[in-house]
């Protein structure tokens, strides 16, 4: 099944950031979001994940098909690696913990509390969560931050195997992941025009 997005307008807070966003996503394909800082990559991903309802436009999929991973790792500092993973597995009803642990080489981190892990280790744990979601579309915001080259490769293999099983991914990243089936989407052209910046007619009347 193909996923498509048409004429999407997204906002961040009260600011209209993107408009007219449209693309299609076939199973097994990854879209790499590019654009300078502040172009709206995060805004678009949060919109696709259902955290911010779109102002206009439509998506052919429900936010429940999307697994979102943002800048923050979503780990509890006082819980161990295993406890963090078990919690997310229970939330998503998944039994894939062992696969995720093997994929990101987390064996040594299972008994350690997240507060005693390095930034890269926490990031790996956060990415392992994606494998527990069992969702078709991965919406990833700068997933490789604080990963070393070996773990970037590990992550790329993980995305590849997700694509190979018919999944899709939308990834905002500035580095080349070396994914074979990736298309680049530049967010720049979708920037909302300055005239439509103001959202709230009530506020406009006030000013």
């Amino acid at each position: 099944m193909e996923f498509s997005v048409e004429g999407l307008a997204c906002r961040r807070g009260e600011l209209r950031v993107l408009e007219g966003v449209g693309f299609t996503l076939t199973p097994g394909e990854a879209v790499i979001l590019r654009g300078p800082n502040g172009a709206g990559k995060t805004t678009l991903l949060r919109c696709l994940a259902g955290l911010t309802p779109p102002l206009e436009g439509k998506m052919s999929f429900s936010p429940d098909d999307v697994a979102y991973a943002g800048h923050l790792d979503g780990l509890k500092a006082q819980l161990t690696g295993a406890e963090n993973l078990r919690f997310w597995a229970a939330i998503y009803g998944s039994d894939q913990i062992d696969t995720a642990v093997a994929q990101f080489d987390l064996e040594g981190l299972l008994d350690r509390q997240a507060q005693h892990m390095s930034a890269g280790q926490k990031r790996r744990l956060a990415l392992a969560r994606l494998m527990l979601t069992g969702r078709k579309i991965w919406a990833l915001d700068e997933p490789t931050v604080s990963l070393d080259t070996q773990n970037v490769a590990r992550f790329a293999r993980c995305v590849e195997s997700h694509l190979a099983t018919g999944g899709s991914a939308i990834i905002a990243t500035h580095i080349d992941l070396g994914l074979p089936n990736a298309r680049v989407l530049d967010v720049g052209p979708f920037k909302a025009s300055a005239a439509s910046d103001q959202l709230d007619p009530f506020l406009e009347d006030m000013i």
């Binding site: 955290l51 979102y68 923050l72 790792d73 979503g74």
Partner: peptide, 14 residues
């Protein structure tokens, strides 16, 4: 909210 868990919970099946 501060460690990002709330975003993920909001997008989870719950």
């Amino acid at each position: 909210y501060e460690d990002g868990t709330l975003d993920i919970l909001a997008t989870s099946p719950m």
